[in-house]
Design a protein around this nucleic acid. Structure first.
Lengths: 110, 110
DNA sequence: TTGACATTTATAGGATTGTTGAAATATGGA
DNA sequence: TCCATATTTCAACAATCCTATAAATGTCAA
């Protein structure tokens, strides 16, 4: 992930509705969720969810595909790890004082 | 780091000048840098750097202390690792498909 | 206490972002 | 074809953010 994308991605993550959408889509996995379901679950209007999904797409964090009448959105796992990595490597220069505490919680995980 | 802070922190990281400042302060380490030096290095005016530093402070990412005539800013390492961790744990639910590739680059580091 | 230095705060303008409701587009079924 | 469904696009408006300039604050030294 380059800096330009990262700036947009950070902006995308800085809004409550969009953060909620990202969480939903990560949980939903590769199958994704239709825009209408996302709107309903997040509690916003169709046109509002569409606006935010477009912003997330612009940041590269989600992808869209049409499935019959629905448009199904999925989280882009690669972009999300790219963003985490950008934060650790580009912003924080891989500084162990920052990166190691962040990693601690996963060292014993799967 | 709670969600409210994370939203502000993501917003703070989504602006070019502020991202530049974070990079500078991470490199500078615990000694930090005076506002004037930051402004000069980042190539912006004193009042502009002050504006952005305040935004970073609001997001909890930097701290300030006075040293004689200067005000010295430092990166808050704990907040930065908190943000990385928020991204992995809260947004991405610790999903290995996201977190493991992000970690790969550091597994052999110090 | 005056003056220079370092920084912040106030203010105002323009630019970008977010929300809403209505209209437009695309799809599939009767 | 006509209609219902699913979603996007448009337009208008409010809210927030960014920049620039000027004035205010705090610190030190003569």
């Amino acid at each position: 992930m380059d800096e330009r994308q990262a700036l947009i991605a950070f902006g995308a993550m800085s809004q409550e509705t969009r953060l909620k959408i990202v969480r939903l889509l990560v949980k939903a996995g590769p199958e994704g969720m239709a825009a209408g379901i996302i709107a309903e679950t997040a509690g916003v209007s169709a046109s509002n969810v569409s606006f935010h999904l477009k912003e997330l797409e612009r940041g590269g964090l989600v992808t869209a595909r049409r499935d019959a009448r629905s448009i199904v959105y999925s989280a882009d796992y690669q972009a999300l790890s790219g963003l985490i990595r950008f934060l650790m490597e580009d912003c924080c220069a891989g500084n162990p004082a920052i990166c190691q505490p962040a990693l601690a919680c996963r060292s014993s995980g799967s």
